[in-house]
């Protein structure tokens, strides 16, 4: 915690002083317009109904609720990944990566500090998006609070987990734009944010299952749309946690070599 708290505090100060409205508006717009698109399609094309075996594939007949939870989760994922995975490459660009590597602090607490701080702002942002959804008439049934909390924790671990190897890739490549957007676009297709992954061809579905966000989404939907008790969501929660931790461990292993590559490149440039 000796590293996590100061990092949290530093990022909090930076966020409060220079809040990046552009990023926020961008991800908020994506969330709102995704829900908006589903809403319009549902009413003017579907006539207020969803077909094509949606209920069977999705585990719920509530198309708008399904998309809304997915859009909120997508916004959460994108914002958290942007914060955590880009923390180190931002330090690299600002020239502070070397002083960070020089300090005896370990990587994990540093990234946890970044993650905890971003969690606070991200939750507020997601709430703004959900408020919009409720405003246009999306109804989310009263969720099971225990399952929801557990799913939220699992989703946080999942997103944090995938951010760490991503950070290693970014500082190794010295590039964030292609890496992050490729991940976002791929997750959009594979993880079931806006449609049931059962629609996908099998190989793609398995690929989606390898990402912890997919099981996190199932648990979140079980909690919000199905009012599922903790026991019912447990398999997904455990899968999500296990995958998230696996990504985290692999990521932490990769960070050391990645930092060396980054600093070497910085030195030769």
């Amino acid at each position: 915690m000796a590293t996590a708290m100061p990092t949290l505090r530093r990022n909090w100060l930076v966020t409060m002083r220079a809040y990046q409205w552009t990023y926020f508006v961008g991800t908020l717009a994506t969330g709102i317009l995704t829900v908006g698109l589903a809403y319009l399609a549902y009413h003017s094309i579907g006539g207020g109904r969803a077909g094509g075996g949606f209920a069977a594939a999705a585990g719920t007949a509530d198309y708008l609720g399904y998309v809304t939870v997915g859009a909120a989760a997508s916004m959460f994922t994108v914002r958290m990944v942007l914060w955590v995975a880009k923390a180190q490459i931002t330090e690299q660009r600002e020239g502070t990566l070397e002083s960070q590597v020089l300090a005896p602090a370990r990587r994990l607490p540093y990234l946890v500090g970044v993650g905890l701080q971003s969690l606070t702002t991200t939750v507020v942002e997601v709430v703004v998006m959900l408020a919009f959804a409720v405003m246009i008439g999306v109804r989310l049934p009263a969720p099971d609070p225990v399952t929801l909390l557990a799913a939220f924790v699992a989703a946080s671990v999942a997103v944090f987990g995938i951010s760490v190897p991503l950070s290693a890739i970014m500082i190794t490549a010295g590039e964030a734009h292609i890496t992050q957007n490729t991940l976002f676009v791929a997750m959009g297709l594979l993880c079931g944010f806006t449609f049931p992954p059962a629609y996908l061809p099998d190989p793609l579905r398995w690929l989606g299952e390898a990402l912890p966000v997919t099981s996190a989404l199932r648990a979140l939907r079980a909690a919000t749309l199905d009012h599922a008790p903790l026991s019912a969501a447990a398999p997904d929660l455990l899968l999500c946690l296990a995958l998230g931790l696996a990504y985290l461990i692999v990521g932490l292993r990769l960070l050391g070599p990645a930092e060396r590559v980054a600093i070497q490149r910085g030195g030769s440039a």
Binding site: T34, A41, I45, R49, G52, F54, V185, G188
Partner: peptide
């Protein structure tokens, strides 16, 4: 990839009865 995502997203409503 975005095209595929869009297609699957609207599929439930485009295959709704009527």
């Amino acid at each position: 990839l975005t095209l595929a995502t869009t297609y699957y997203t609207v599929l439930p409503v485009t295959s709704a009865p009527g």
